[in-house]
Simulated scan of single mutants.
Amino acid sequence: MIRSVLIGTGSALPARRVSNAELAAQVDTTDEWIVERTGIRFRHIAGEGETTATLARDAALAALSAAGVTAQDIDLIVLATATPDNTFPATATKVQAMLGIDDCVAFDVAAVCSGFLYAVQVADSMLRSGVQRRALVIGAETFSRILDWEDRTTCVLFGDGAGAIVLEARDTPDDATDARARGILATRLHADGRHNELLYVDGGPSTTGTVGKLRMKGREVFRHAVVNLAAVMEEALAAAGLPTDAVDWVVPHQANARILDATARKLSLPAEKVVMTVDRHANTSAASVPLALDQAVRDGRVVAGQIVVLEAMGGGFTWGAAVLRI
């Protein structure tokens, strides 16, 4: 059967790295408070000339290089972001132009922190249809530009960055448990709009005519995240016909170290199987999962043949998981 096989990963971070101590000089917080409650020690903040599109371009170029293909080999770009360069056109089309691709399908997906998982399923469906052959799937954000820097409960949590993968349609064995069956084995997505008020931005073109600022009720988000992430991971593994102990790595959305720990415990997963980069990058929303995946690949932890689960939850609420064999 045709599956979408991951053939390359890449990531990009803004030049400026901001420590907790630097933030503590600006807002009423401390390094100890941030680390204890979130596990975050650093985050990268976009500077002049750095935008969601430029970060996405740099991550895409790194992924193309790792895949050993050129930009001209790409016929689909799906870019997940909640912080586009413009209301329109889609940031994906700006990345397309930056890469020098004259014509390909290019569009954005908006599902906040789950955006990359949504983008993966969309790209996977399109590749398996046989119409496109290679896709760039990107998660990129400049969340620093929608933060209220006077709200110490939210401004310390987020950072900017981008991650990208290259997927290629290939014929693989039907049985997902066959070690030769590489690629995306199963995906599951969910949304529940009844919880909009727990994590949202208080602006938009149709309501206030402004970009707005991020607002969050952290305790409620934490509670939903642990339950939803554990459930959707189990659901995706069941769809792939794989037990939890078949998983080599979980690459979760990097929102909060305590959420990652609690989710692992709920699934009886050893902590050493969970990729964690939240300490270095903070919460980069849709960029979080591909950024963490690329770091794990480049560190030599995630290698060919392994079973990897990607999972995330974000505002909406939206949440999802994908199971793939690298």
Rank of each mutant, 00 (worst) to 15 (best):
E36P: 13
L324H: 05
A60R: 00
T277K: 03
F107L: 09
R41W: 02
A287F: 06
V120D: 00
M126I: 01
V221R: 01
E141F: 04
A296Q: 12
D108M: 11
D75Y: 00
A296I: 14
T54N: 05
D299A: 15
L55Y: 04
M216S: 04
A304Y: 12
T177G: 07
E32G: 14
Y118H: 10
R325V: 09
V275H: 00
T30P: 13
P243G: 09
A59W: 02
L324Q: 02
L199R: 05
V120M: 15
L291G: 05
T187L: 13
G300S: 02
T54V: 04
K217V: 14
A287H: 02
D248C: 07
E150T: 14
G130D: 09
G320W: 05
E197S: 13
T93C: 15
L136H: 02
P270E: 15
L117N: 02
R223E: 10
Q96M: 12
A97W: 03
Q72K: 15
V323Q: 00
F42R: 07
A25Q: 15
V226K: 03
T83C: 06
D175V: 14
A322Q: 03
G159H: 01
Q254G: 08
T172D: 13
C113Y: 07
R265E: 15
I307M: 07
S114M: 08
D178R: 09
A255W: 09
A15N: 12
I7P: 11
L147M: 12
D160Y: 12
N283W: 01
F116H: 00
G300M: 12
G315N: 01
L269T: 07
V302F: 14
D294K: 03
A92Q: 02
F158E: 09
T154A: 00
I184F: 08
W319H: 10
I7M: 04
A238E: 14
L136G: 02
I259W: 08
L293M: 10
T208P: 03
G115E: 01
L214Y: 08
R223M: 06
L61M: 12
D151R: 04
S114A: 15
M276E: 09
D202K: 01
A264K: 09
T172E: 12
W33G: 05
T29A: 10
H224G: 07
V122L: 10
A255R: 10
Q26W: 11
E220H: 13
L117Y: 01
A231N: 07
A59R: 01
E272R: 10
G68Q: 12
